[in-house]
């Protein structure tokens, strides 16, 4: 811990040690029962609900001085939210930060899983707005808990049925429900369903924090995570006709970027680190120039 860099008057990583203990207990329980939502005493954090208060509390509870932290928001390391949270921990915990997925020991994310496969020893912390997958049809918490307890999950397929009836295919594109370890139904947070297969048997530990809803849940390393589907409408991820305009990647999740008032647009990797790494290796997309060229402004 490089105490010189940290803020005076704050405990390491902002939260007090009692709170961290409480959250760590919740995390241990969550890891022991994969996919089960563990209630915890969520604290007020110095940023509003919906900005990642759940994720930050988890990060604050598991981070240690020798960790290297990466924070992404929609795949990007350089958006306001990602930058603020990264700086928050740099100042309160004095940890090293990075934008490189490979170098990070701890990654806090909103709405994406990095393209580069995660490895053993890494921890991925998700920010979760609404943890309860059954909430759309059952407003009562007592009832949803009972449904989890009794594994009454058939109703979840009603939602997918409606998708197919209305659109001819399962149109749910993000926050796509999964069954964890063959037991608990789980919301993976609003990641695109493109990322769902990465959760399955991931070597890294996945932790989910919902600050406003006061729930923590987890997927331990190498755990089965199955996306729900029908036999005749199997789970599928999005595909693009284009490749990344900057790095030419065909295997990554692409964001559509409007380039001017004339409606010109391009598709670029949503994972900025992945894109840059590829360009550094010499991959060039149709609109890309040389390595290191900044992305088109949004």
């Amino acid at each position: 811990m490089s105490a010189t860099e940290t803020l005076e008057g704050y405990n390491f990583a902002y939260l007090d040690e009692q709170t961290k203990r409480m959250i760590r207990r919740a995390i241990l329980k969550a890891v022991a029962v994969p996919g089960y939502q563990v209630p915890f005493g969520s604290r007020e954090m110095p940023l509003p609900y919906g900005w990642g208060t759940g994720g930050i509390q988890i990060t604050a509870s598991v981070i240690s001085a020798d960790d290297t932290l990466k924070v992404i928001d929609q795949g990007a390391d350089d958006t306001t939210n990602a930058v603020s949270i990264r700086r928050f921990f740099a100042r309160t915990a004095g940890v090293d930060t990075t934008e490189k997925t490979e170098d990070a020991s701890l990654i806090q994310t909103r709405h994406r899983i990095p393209e580069r496969a995660l490895k053993e020893g890494q921890i991925l912390v998700y920010q979760v707005p609404i943890p309860e997958p059954l909430r759309w049809l059952e407003p009562r918490e007592t009832e949803t808990r009972k449904m989890h307890a009794l594994e009454e999950y058939g109703i979840m397929h009603v939602k997918l049925y409606e998708d197919i009836a209305r659109f001819g295919r399962i149109a749910t594109a993000y926050d796509y429900p999964v069954l964890v370890n063959g037991r608990y139904l789980m919301r993976p947070s609003p990641i695109p369903k493109f990322d769902n297969p990465k959760m399955d048997n991931m070597p890294a530990l996945q932790l989910f924090g919902a600050g406003r809803e006061k729930r923590i849940y987890a997927v331990p390393p190498y755990t089965d995570v199955k996306s729900l589907d029908f036999d005749d409408h199997p789970f599928e991820v999005q595909k693009w006709d284009d490749c990344c305009a900057l790095c030419g990647a065909e295997d990554s999740y692409l964001d559509e970027v409007v380039m001017d008032d004339k409606g010109r647009r391009m598709f670029v990797c949503s994972d900025t680190d992945y894109c840059e790494e590829r360009r550094a290796q010499g991959h060039v997309g149709p609109l890309g120039t040389s390595p290191g060229t900044p992305q088109a402004a949004e």
């Binding site: 058939g154 109703i155 009603v158 939602k159 049925y161 409606e162 009836a165 029908f230 036999d231």
Partner: peptide
């Protein structure tokens, strides 16, 4: 009834609840 979902889903719900996983059959 579940008023927020279609007639077909209302009828199919019980089937899905007991494990039916073939959209065409349920429909």
């Amino acid at each position: 009834l579940r008023l927020g979902v279609s007639a077909g889903a209302n009828v199919g719900e019980r089937l899905m609840a007991v494990g039916a996983r073939h959209y065409g059959d349920i429909r």
